[in-house]
């Protein structure tokens, strides 16, 4: 059995959150994650994007640069998406109003639309879900809201997530489960995240996929590997040798062709 790699694509480090990226990484490693995406809210950015510890071990533990855009005006949101798209590997949008959700799902530069439904019945509908499916925008469900609410609010949240999940299944929209963590104490191990997701109707496999394969897919799309040639084409083995041989062959062929009358 192949060991899954788990990712949490919604962590808010200091200064917005409480803990530094290093502390979050230490705990996430301990909990069994293979990587974290740091997605500070864009309206609470200190000048520039926050420092991300990389120290060259990207293969061991992936620290991914991301951002969560907060903007109520759709045209300004499109502008921000254009501005940050090249700078970050994960671009999320803080959903909420119908306008923002609509703008986010119709822009294929967006990777994740986070918590599209702050209130009951104002979240995802079939139009938005269809657009999200076409533009490959994943829907992000944050689990920390489920941890900290009680009673009435948690009941509403669970039924909202259930409704979102059904629409997402119907229109083949990917779901990303994220902790939306503001501190170390909001992080949960992948299996626990999956167990919480099972409460609102996700199958175990589905939940684990939304913590592993869906994030990996987003990452692969935005961070091309060394052998990347063009969409869908990639040199997997013998990357450097292959290219050199190819060039040499090409030159030889060119010469031969040139000699022909």
């Amino acid at each position: 059995m192949v060991k899954r790699e788990f990712y949490d694509f919604g962590v808010h480090p200091a200064p917005e959150g409480e803990n530094s990226p290093e502390e979050l990484v230490a705990l996430a490693k301990h909990l069994g994650y293979s990587g974290l995406a740091f997605v500070p809210h864009s309206d609470k950015l200190s000048p520039g994007l926050p420092f991300i510890p990389s120290d060259g071990d990207f293969e061991v533990f992936k620290c991914i640069r991301g951002i969560e855009l907060v903007e109520e005006n759709p045209s300004k949101l499109h502008g921000l998406i254009g501005k940050f798209r090249k700078k970050v590997d994960v671009l999320a949008v803080h959903g909420g109003s119908e306008k923002v959700n609509r703008a986010a799902v119709e822009n294929s530069g967006v990777d994740i639309l986070n918590h599209p439904s702050p209130e009951m019945g104002r979240g995802l509908n079939q139009v938005l879900a269809k657009a999200a499916g076409e533009n490959e925008v994943a829907i992000g469900l944050s689990l920390s809201a489920l941890l900290y609410s009680r009673g009435f609010r948690r009941v509403r949240l669970l039924s909202e997530y259930r409704a979102t999940l059904e629409l997402a299944r119907k229109y083949e929209v990917s779901i990303v489960l994220s902790s939306d963590a503001m501190s170390c104490f909001d992080l949960r191990a992948p299996r626990e995240m999956a167990a919480i997701a099972e409460l609102f109707g996700m199958e175990e496999d589905e939940a684990l996929a939304s913590l592993s394969t869906v994030p990996t897919g987003i990452l692969a799309r935005n961070r091309p590997s060394a052998g990347y040639v063009r969409p869908g084409v990639e040199v997997v083995e013998g990357f450097e040798e292959g290219i050199e041989e190819g060039i040499e062959e090409g030159i030889e062929e060119g010469i031969e062709e040139g000699e022909l009358p």
Binding site: H30, C184, A189, E192, M193, A195, I196, E198
Partner: peptide, 20 residues
């Protein structure tokens, strides 16, 4: 049970997390 353990957020008014 895992889910119930995961939603535990504090013990004795101090923040805490259960890790299985």
């Amino acid at each position: 049970t895992r889910a119930a353990l995961a939603v535990l957020t504090q013990v004795n008014r101090k923040r805490a997390t259960v890790h299985v």
